[in-house]
């Protein structure tokens, strides 16, 4: 549940989601669910000359199972809070 809660904190921030087919999509994080499916708004494919397949898509839903990385804004992590939450989770909530 930690990562679900963590991603919910990032809603509204700009992220880049890299998929397991090497496609990288940037956009504003709109929502996330329990499967870590991600919805992005105002999306743009990072290399859209190589990947023109989503040129007419501005909002998208990305299935959690195909996400390889999520690049976060530099101020996206409050390390102290994350440390505490991680310890709490390791103790079993």
């Amino acid at each position: 549940m930690l990562f679900f809660s963590y991603f919910k904190e990032l809603v509204g921030k700009e992220v880049i989601v890299e998929l397991k087919n090497d496609l990288a999509i940037s956009g504003i994080l709109h929502s996330v669910d329990q499967y870590l499916n991600i919805k992005l708004e105002n999306t743009r494919v990072v290399d859209d000359t190589k990947y023109p397949h989503m040129l007419s898509v501005k909002n998208c839903f990305i299935r959690g199972s195909v996400v390889r990385y999520v690049q976060l804004p530099p101020d996206g992590v409050d390390v102290d809070i994350l440390h505490d939450a991680t310890r709490r989770e390791a103790r079993g909530g």
């Binding site: 190589k50 990947y51 040129l55 839903f61």
Partner: peptide, 26 residues
Amino acid sequence: IGVVGELDEELDSNLDLSALRAHPLK
């Protein structure tokens, strides 16, 4: 399924698909 995108009809009608060349996605 990997990605489900909302197709913007206006953007899509402005695309010239017959001129678009690209490798298929991996």
